[in-house]
């Protein structure tokens, strides 16, 4: 547990020192989302209808951009090798790295999402569900992405490989993330919002649990191979 917190705080300190990395994902998220009203026209009803999809797709791409540096610095400066030789369990270390990654990319995205939702005329019910869905969904994005980040360490064209490996695995999260908000927006009575979105949110939770289970195992296996 102590090793876990050590890794998290170390990564957070490193991220805070390099503020450009920290802000890049959020800036990318806001800027790309802002392109859509220009591309599709500023009709408020249309924008409100497509907002869930735009927010999720751009959030997904923002996370994707940040994945390459998740393990690369540690791999290049040799601290990964030290970690493997140390007594810390690699599974725990992977989870710690993922938590730090989520705190520096996923969490800022969640905080920025209401702003975009406002710009796209989303109503408050849908916005609540959007936030719940993102709280359940973005950790899965970090977890699944970590597998691809560990697998491509030391690969030629690693940066190009990550999207190919990760995007197919992101599709379920995208489907249910958007589905939850769509269900909320389509419910006519005020009380039915949560009930309608519930199955989608439960499935997002299931994806989170499965990736919480798989990522430490797969990530640790991949890290061990990367330094062999």
């Amino acid at each position: 547990m102590k090793a876990f917190l050590n890794i998290v705080s170390r990564d957070l300190r490193l991220a805070l020192r390099q503020k450009s990395d920290l802000t890049m994902a959020v800036l990318f998220f806001i800027l790309t989302a802002m392109l859509f009203p220009f591309g599709l026209g500023p009709e408020p009803n249309l924008l409100a209808r497509i907002a869930p999809g735009i927010i999720w797709v751009t959030a997904l791409l923002a996370v994707l951009l940040s994945l390459e540096r998740l393990f690369l610095a540690d791999y290049e400066d040799g601290s990964l090798e030290q970690l493997i030789l140390s007594s810390t369990s690699l599974e725990v270390a992977v989870l710690a790295k993922v938590l730090a990654h989520w705190l520096t990319t996923g969490l800022p995205l969640i905080l920025a999402a209401p702003l975009i939702a406002l710009l796209f005329n989303m109503d408050s019910d849908a916005m609540t569900i959007l936030l719940i869905a993102m709280i359940l969904g973005t950790p899965s994005l970090s977890l699944i992405g970590a597998i691809a980040a560990t697998l491509t360490l030391g690969a030629r064209r690693g940066g190009v490989l990550i999207p190919l490996l990760v995007l197919p695995l992101y599709i379920p999260t995208l489907i249910f993330g958007v589905g939850a908000i769509d269900a909320a927006m389509n419910s006519l009575e005020a009380g039915a919002v949560i009930a309608n979105a519930r199955p989608h949110l439960l499935l997002l939770g299931a994806i989170l649990l499965v990736s919480l289970l798989i990522t430490p195992l797969a990530g640790a296996a991949a890290l061990r191979q990367s330094v062999e």
Partner: peptide
């Protein structure tokens, strides 16, 4: 796309062995 990723990962490394192992992890996931 998983098949394509598997093949791309397998050929992405200098040492064939590392590509094999990485692709194996991906296939299981």
């Amino acid at each position: 796309f998983l098949y394509l990723g598997h093949m791309a990962l397998m050929h992405a490394f200098e040492e064939q062995e590392r590509g094999n192992k990485a692709a194996a992890v991906l296939a299981i996931v």
